[in-house]
Design a protein around this nucleic acid. Structure first.
Lengths: 133, 133
DNA sequence: CTCTGTGCAAAGCGTTTGCAAACGA
DNA sequence: TCGTTTGCAAACGCTTTGCACAGAG
């Protein structure tokens, strides 16, 4: 039983070939939006329907296997759930880069100052990546 | 000539009653999503159509008078453009609170470490506000 | 064997568009 | 007056749903 199968079962989802293809594509790309996900999977798995992709994305998000990243002025991308991190988004190549940094410090400071009980925080930095500069 | 009229002209937009109502509502509420904006403006301005609100929101964003705030798992809200700040979003009362803090420090650090040229950054903190606790 | 997932087509929903009339400057 | 904006209805595009069949466990 491979890794992705295991991953799905751990999140109470059956391991179908469609789902394995979806996870493989997201995992390989790092971050991907619905359109590119569909295009990519169509290559591996010709008979898949867009509805199936939507249904699966939604159930994987509900079961915490995937996360949606909302980006200003662009479509959302999806990523495999992983440790807390921030995102750099290049407006030229549209690449999304994970950054593991100490966002927590500033978030805790803000929350303390405002008596706010944080459950989630998202830092998205938009600009130009080093390759595009 | 009132304030809002001035504001619109400065952004190369004609001051129509519909637009004044839109700005007034957004200004008064601080942050508001399309649905509540429409409901609120219908009260002041019965004949307005949803299409007009969409058209105006879009042109005001294009002309930098408004900004869209994308929030995880909720509809976007709109705010009058103002100095750079972060957002606290309460998942209970749905209030959005502006926080003027030094997000810049962490953003600059991250960008330096990744050779990334920042043009925009957004920090959204989701949780429970002090009133709802 | 049972329950869940798939694929198709249709429905749904939020947003945008085209157009004639109204309006702002 | 001229160019822009409005309101309506229709169009659009993305996402979800219903259903019969297929497949996972």
């Amino acid at each position: 039983m491979n890794n992705y199968t295991h991953m799905l079962r751990e999140h109470n989802l059956k391991a179908t070939p469609q789902r394995l293809a979806i996870i493989d594509t997201i995992y390989t790309s790092g971050h991907i939006n619905i359109d590119n996900l569909y295009i990519d999977i169509k290559n591996k798995f010709e008979s898949i329907s867009l509805a199936t992709i939507y249904k699966n994305i939604n159930s994987m998000i509900k079961n915490l296997l995937l996360e949606e990243v909302k980006i200003p002025n662009q479509k959302s991308v999806y990523e495999i759930s992983k440790d807390k991190h921030s995102h750099l988004v290049c407006t030229k190549c549209e690449e999304v880069i994970d950054v593991y940094t100490n966002e927590k410090d500033i978030v805790n400071k803000i929350c303390k100052e405002n008596d706010f009980t944080v459950s989630q925080s998202d830092l998205i930095i938009t600009g130009i990546c080093k390759n595009c500069l």
